[in-house]
Design a protein around this nucleic acid. Structure first.
Lengths: 257, 257
DNA sequence: CGGGACTTTGAGCAAATTCAACCATTGTGG
DNA sequence: CCACAATGGTTGAATTTGCTCAAAGTCCCG
């Protein structure tokens, strides 16, 4: 280990001592990226790390909405239930995503860990005061809410007007795009959620999801190393199957296969 | 007319002279409600009234997103198209609603007038400067975006997990609730949009929408004075058909019928 | 190695769509 | 002022997509 690395480590360590937030891996990806070191210091006072085991709830629909969370690692599902138990997963959330953005006094969703979650918890009441003091934070929240809204509208198109195959293709491309945005150019995707989770997100049944995967595999568009691990073999083909443009998808070897 | 009324009128008139926004009927319902008279005065400089005839577009998907609009009166539909022409209407907008909230550089939707529209146009660039100066406006925008997001998530549940009947029932209840929120306790609803518009909003075909209305009529849940004019005869029954609670619906005679 | 959860596959079914015809309303030009 | 074209709405029959029900297969974890 050379001298520079030693210095880097030392500086990281002292940052961590003065403020855990300063050393946070997802800081720049989430809301905290817009704060300066002094503000971060203050923010530390109202945050705390939480871990949630797979299958456990972070909060339930109708609970008082006391916290806002940022995912440091893991995958969560956020859903609503109808009276007879039908479930709609309005979103899967991953590293750097915000949980509990559009809530009022009580949560309008249940949030559960799909994989083990490491979360950064913010108390909403003091966070609100923070917003009042630093409008830049509020701007950032508005940006995020706006992006969420645009994504929700795309999901409405998917749910209301796409076929089962188009839904699955769109879903896979969305995950692939997300992975690329986070700097991973690989064509293989982890699907930590179950087939029934995917169905409840796309307005399909478990069986229909499974059948679509099988069809795609037989056509050579994807390969299934395991049920939770898809390889995108022909992303151009997948885009063609998705019913809408593959906007924002980085060209890769497979895109031109 | 007594002396007080004369004074009221005079004051309204002078407000109108100094700033059209001060006399705006939808001001308190929309973003401008949070501004003081001086700020309103400044806002006037970047606004303008626009009218759009039924069927005409306010803007098209992919156009540069230059303006934000507030509906002063009328009904608009906002939609996205798939490559083959399938349409998804992500929302119908009415008096006091904001058009073009979640847009980036270009519009992600086409917006058309359903009935004659009277709009208040805001140039987005100067509006942005306004936001920088008055964080209270940004807060208001965040509130609105948050509400929109919650509504979008409810719509996802509807699209992904409700039956045709539940969709129609939910849609009618949503319109009824909206009307009540705006102070109209009547049980009759205007449906300015076509059956095909409704279908494209709920993920159904024209025919399915029509059949559902007929079924509801035969069951005595609604009456159709004309195709564009529904009377809610049994809102409790409609709630039961909607698959989810009738949250926020004011009790009326019909509710207990 | 055994058990439970998840996935896949198959066969039959049903809700909603497609296709087609007809009806109602409205607005226009002769 | 009326005929008629156009648009939108309703109804019916046939079809299809995706669902339900059922059974077997697979994987993971203790």
């Amino acid at each position: 280990m050379d001298r520079n690395n030693v210095l880097d480590l030392a500086s990281k360590r002292s940052e961590a001592l003065m403020s855990p937030c300063a050393a946070c891996a997802v800081r720049d990806l989430s809301i905290c990226g817009v704060l300066d070191p002094e503000q971060l210091e203050q923010l530390t006072a109202i945050t705390g790390e939480v871990t949630v085991a797979p299958g456990q709830a972070v909060f339930y629909e109708a609970d008082p909405a006391e916290n806002l969370y940022v995912i440091k690692s893991g995958c969560a599902r956020v859903y609503k239930l109808l009276a007879d138990g039908r479930r709609m997963i309005t979103g899967f959330l991953f590293t750097a995503d915000l949980i509990g953005l559009a809530e009022k006094d009580t949560y309008s969703h249940t949030c559960e860990a799909v994989t083990k979650l490491t979360l950064c918890r913010f108390s909403r009441r003091p966070l609100q005061e923070f917003f009042d003091r630093y409008p830049v934070l509020e701007r950032r929240m508005l940006d995020i809410a706006t992006n969420e809204l645009a994504a929700a509208q795309d999901q409405m198109v998917l749910l209301g007007r796409k076929t089962a195959q188009e839904k699955i293709a769109s879903f896979l491309l969305l995950l692939l795009r997300r992975q690329q945005r986070h700097g991973n150019r690989a064509n293989s995707l982890a699907l930590p959620m179950t087939r029934s989770d995917i169905g409840d997100h796309l307005g399909l049944t478990t069986e229909s999801v499974s059948r679509c995967f099988t069809q795609f595999r037989k056509r050579g568009v994807i390969a299934l190393e395991s049920a939770q691990h898809v390889e995108i073999l022909d992303s151009a083909g997948l885009i063609a199957l998705s019913g809408s443009g593959g906007d924002g998808l980085e060209p890769t070897a497979a895109t031109f296969a």
